[in-house]
Design a protein around this nucleic acid. Structure first.
Lengths: 253, 253
DNA sequence: AAGTGGTCTAGACCACCAC
DNA sequence: TGGTGGTCTAGACCACTTG
């Protein structure tokens, strides 16, 4: 499979191209992905093998791999190796769609796993975000969501228990929106989002089984019911390579 | 200013912390930014100076700096050095606001510079995106936009000349929307956007005076007039550290 | 001309993972 | 236990920027 990977560093074509050799390796690997020699989720040979193949040091091959990581073509599972990134999922904020639904609609397999749930005292920070008096209890939920068995986001949700007492009794490995509707009789009808490229912290990266410090997208949201009550404040941390955000203005009048 | 930057690698606190030393340096520098010892747009000492200060090799200090770059706290101007990143600008796609307006409204200085403009033959790619028959002429414009004298995005715009003949005669260092309105009598009333984290190519990075391959946000858009005509197709490449995207659902009924 | 970041070599030891 | 990626040392030469 990885035979005949030859890219000659001292060949005239490369010497006169002026771009550094690690970018030639990058192009070479990108081509393998593009022509499907390397397919979605394939594991690459180890860094040491690759550095032998291309006759460079590990530092150089790592620059090529990191470049492809930034581009979203490759990812690494912490200490497990390098893999070809699966296609991005399309996220349409204005549709206010449920994760399970839009992932399934794309022909992929969604999964939500609850990492922790607690009824804890509101801090000054959650007080500010959620509008609950400091010291009062709020629900704090942490979940991990995967697509085709690859973890793609961690979310932290803070919920005002006034609107959904006994929430901890529910099965939270699905849509909160549905639980609100079925068990508490209200709907989420409006929301505000903020999306920001950031780096994934150690804690988030470990939960997603990726290397600390790679880039991600942080999405903060506030969600309201019909009456305008602020029900929850949430933060999602997505792998940067898993997401494409689409937006359309209101249709023509 | 950079005196007394001491962080002792072999101190017990750091040794027992388990995290790699380059992250301690990262934390140290992040703290200097947070407490305003290092301020927006300040230049850092050179990598060699920093590596002496912290008693590590350049490779290690570069890992710290690159980490802060991914987080958006530092940026580097190509071969000029490392600088503290200015605050992000907030971008609200649904407002369909003009760059000059939302940057000014944030108390910052916008600037648009036209890099090139041409009436060229439509390719298969632009044909597909713009719906113009291949071989027919289309306007192709490339612009650079800055905030407070820092280039933050490059945009490539492809326009169907059927709706705005003689466009090249206009001053394009401002809002195209305004030109459409004033000179051609139509308005942009709907649009579709797609936003995607990517890496900046060599060409884009050079135009923005940053290092090739750093992460960015690619925003593709199609914009339509009142009658639903597709006027233009555009691609913007933003520095990832310059942008926060905000979105709000329709107000309550 | 001096200094900067960009690229690269040739090693090393470690923590962790799969077998 | 052997191999992986993660971290780090101690250098080097180059292209480019700044004075």
């Amino acid at each position: 499979m990885f035979q005949n990977w030859k890219l000659i560093k001292d060949s005239p074509a490369i010497k006169e191209s002026k771009s550094p050799f690690y970018l030639h390796i990058r192009d070479y690997l990108a081509e393998q992905i593009s022509n499907k020699t390397l397919r979605s989720s394939d594991k690459l040979p180890s860094e040491r093998i690759l550095s032998q193949e291309f006759s460079v040091t590990r530092i150089t091959i790592r620059e090529s791999l990191q470049q492809l990581e930034v581009e979203g073509l490759l990812y690494r599972a912490n200490r497990k190796g390098w893999f070809v990134t699966p296609p991005r999922i399309i996220y349409k904020p204005q549709d206010n769609q449920i994760f399970e639904d839009y992932v399934s609609a794309a022909g992929r397999l969604p999964k939500t796993e609850t990492l922790s749930i607690a009824l804890q005292e509101s801090t000054r920070w959650t007080e500010e975000k959620l509008g609950v008096t400091a010291g009062k209890p709020i629900y704090s939920i942490k979940r991990k969501r995967s697509i085709d068995h690859r973890p793609v986001l961690i979310e932290e949700i803070y919920i005002n228990p006034e609107f959904c007492p006994g929430l901890t009794q529910q099965n939270l490995n699905g849509s909160l929106t549905k639980i609100y509707k079925q068990h508490y009789g209200f709907s989420i009808t409006s929301f505000a989002l903020s999306m920001c490229p950031t780096a994934l912290t150690k804690e988030i990266a470990e939960a997603l089984e990726v290397t600390t410090g790679i880039s991600g997208i942080a999405i903060s949201s506030k969600r309201f019911d019909e009456a305008g009550n602020l029900i929850e404040f949430a933060r999602e941390y997505w792998l940067h390579d898993s997401l494409e955000i689409q937006f359309q203005s209101a249709p023509l009048k």
